[in-house]
Computed example of a mutant assay.
Amino acid sequence: MSLIAFLIIGCVAGWLAGQLTKGSGFGLIGNIAIGVVGSFIGGFTFRLLGLHSGSFIGSIVTATVGAVILLYIVRLAKS
């Protein structure tokens, strides 16, 4: 996957995760960071469940699910 597509997916996934969990985004760099880490977590989780996404939208869904998991873990650690 190209770097630009990877960053776009990360940005969109981070923004969506912020909307789903907090109600606002984390800025461009924050969204990209959360989305990129989330894509690894989501990919790992989906592989454990036997799921695979090959499309652009599927990659965004995978990264968003991973980013939501990441934000949930971070909030548990903060509490």
Rank of each mutant, 00 (worst) to 15 (best):
C11Q: 00
L70G: 03
L71R: 02
Y72E: 15
G38P: 01
L70T: 02
A13Q: 02
V36Y: 11
L20Q: 04
R75F: 07
L76K: 13
L51M: 15
T45N: 14
Q19E: 03
G30F: 12
G14S: 06
G30D: 07
F40S: 08
I73D: 06
G50E: 07
I29A: 04
V36L: 12
G38N: 01
L16Y: 02
F56V: 13
G50F: 07
A5F: 07
G43V: 09
S55P: 11
A33I: 06
G27Q: 03
G27R: 06
G10S: 03
V36N: 12
G10T: 04
Q19R: 08
F56L: 12
L28V: 14
G23Q: 04
S24F: 11
V74W: 10
G14P: 02
I60C: 08
I73Y: 09
H52K: 15
Y72I: 14
T21H: 04
S39P: 09
I34R: 05
A67W: 10
A5W: 06
L48H: 13
T62I: 12
I57Q: 14
S24L: 15
A5N: 05
G10L: 00
I8H: 03
G25Q: 00
L28S: 05
G42C: 06
V36G: 10
I4Y: 02
I32F: 02
V61T: 11
L49A: 09
L76N: 14
